[in-house]
C-alpha cells in the first residue's frame, strides 16, 4: 500500500544546537495504527511537529499522499487540514474559556458553514464522552477532561491522520481505557492514527506497526511481535517487554501452555490459552 505520510532522511537541529532528529526515515500506511516508542527526549514530539508542517526540516522532506510538501501557504493549509495533532499537554491547546468554542475553532478555520460546524462540535462532544461538559468553562475542568476536550477539538476537524502525543500520560486507569477505546473507534472509521507512548503494554496490544526512536534516530521498526522479540533492540531503547509476553513465555517454558500455542495479542487471548487444571494435570 502506498504510504499516506512519509518522512525521508529528516534531520532537525533546534536553535540551541540540540540535534533532535538525525536522518529519520519512516512511512505511515493509510488506515493503520502506528505507535512510536522511545525514551524521553528521543525526538517523538519533534517528528510530529514536522508531520503537521509546524517545523520545517533542515534536511530531508515530508511527503503527504505522495506529494512532497513545499511549505507554500496553500500546501501547509492543506496538510493541516489532513493531519491533526493532539498535543501532550492539553493546557497548551486550550485557548478559550468555553468548551464549545474551543472545539469549534478548528472546523471554522477549515472554512465550513456555521451549521455544519455546530453539528461537528456536537458529534465530537458525544464521541469523546463530554457532552455534559459543553457549557462548562475550560478552567474548571480536570486534567483528563481537558485532554478529552483537546481530542474533541481535533476530531471535529475530521482529518485523515490523527497524531496523539502521549494520549494516556497522567490519566487514571479508567480514563486510559476509555481513551484507548476511543482511539479504536476512530481507527474503525478508517482514520490513520499515530501515537507516541512510553507504555509498552499499550503499544503491544494496540498497534499494527511500531517505530522505535532513540536519540533522534529510528532504531527499529516492525510489527509488535517482531519488535518485542528483539531483546537487543529493547535493551538499546531502554524498553521493557510487555507483561503479556513475559507471562506467555514463562507459562510456555514451564509447560503450562502447549509449545504450539500462538503468541497472544490481548489479555483475553492469553487467558483463553491457559487450560483448565484437570486437563493440564494430564498434560504434565
Amino acid at each position: 500500500m502506498a504510504p499516506l505520510l512519509e518522512a525521508v532522511k529528516l534531520s532537525f537541529t533546534y536553535p540551541d544546537g540540540t540535534r533532535a532528529l538525525q536522518n529519520v526515515t519512516l512511512s505511515i500506511p493509510p488506515g493503520k495504527k502506528i505507535a512510536v516508542l522511545g525514551p524521553n527526549g528521543a525526538g517523538k514530539s519533534t517528528l510530529f511537529l514536522h508531520f503537521n508542517g509546524i517545523l520545517r526540516p533542515q534536511e530531508g522532506c515530508i511527503y503527504f499522499a505522495g506529494n512532497r510538501i513545499d511549505y507554500s501557504h496553500k500546501a501547509l493549509i492543506n496538510l493541516r487540514r489532513q493531519v491533526g495533532i493532539v498535543f501532550q499537554d492539553p493546557d497548551s491547546m486550550l485557548f478559550s474559556a468555553s468548551v464549545r468554542q474551543e472545539i469549534s475553532f478548528g472546523p471554522l478555520n477549515l472554512g465550513l458553514a456555521r451549521d455544519e460546524v455546530a453539528q461537528r462540535v456536537e458529534a465530537a462532544l458525544v464521541a469523546t464522552g463530554i457532552a455534559d461538559l459543553r457549557d462548562k468553562p475550560t478552567h474548571f475542568l480536570s486534567y483528563g477532561q481537558k485532554k478529552r476536550v483537546a481530542i474533541a477539538s481535533v476530531l471535529a476537524m475530521e482529518p485523515r491522520v490523527i497524531i496523539f502525543d502521549e494520549p494516556t500520560a497522567y490519566l487514571d486507569p479508567r480514563s486510559t481505557r476509555e481513551v484507548m477505546a476511543l482511539l479504536a473507534d476512530i481507527s474503525r472509521q478508517g482514520k490513520t492514527i499515530i501515537l507516541s507512548t512510553h507504555d509498552v503494554d499499550i503499544a503491544y496490544t494496540w498497534a499494527d506497526y511500531i517505530y522505535i526512536m532513540a536519540r533522534g534516530r529510528v532504531i527499529g521498526a516492525g510489527t509488535p511481535a517482531e519488535i518485542f522479540c528483539d531483546a537487543a533492540l529493547l535493551e538499546t531503547a531502554d524498553l521493557a517487554r510487555p507483561w503479556l509476553l513475559e507471562v506467555y513465555e514463562d507459562l510456555k517454558n514451564k509447560g503450562w501452555l502447549p509449545a504450539t500455542a500462538p503468541v497472544p495479542q490481548k489479555k483475553e487471548e492469553l487467558l483463553g490459552l491457559i487450560p483448565y487444571r484437570s486437563r493440564s494435570i494430564l498434560a504434565i
Binding site: R80, S92, M93, R100, E102, F105, L108, N109, A118, M157
Partner: peptide
C-alpha cells in the same frame, strides 16, 4: 509559544474564529 504552535496546527490564521452560543 506552545499555544501558538497548537493553534497553528489547527489552522490558525490571524483571527480566533469560534462558534458563539
Amino acid at each position: 509559544q506552545e499555544l501558538f504552535t497548537a493553534l497553528t496546527a489547527r489552522g490558525y490564521q490571524e483571527e480566533l474564529v469560534v462558534l458563539e452560543t
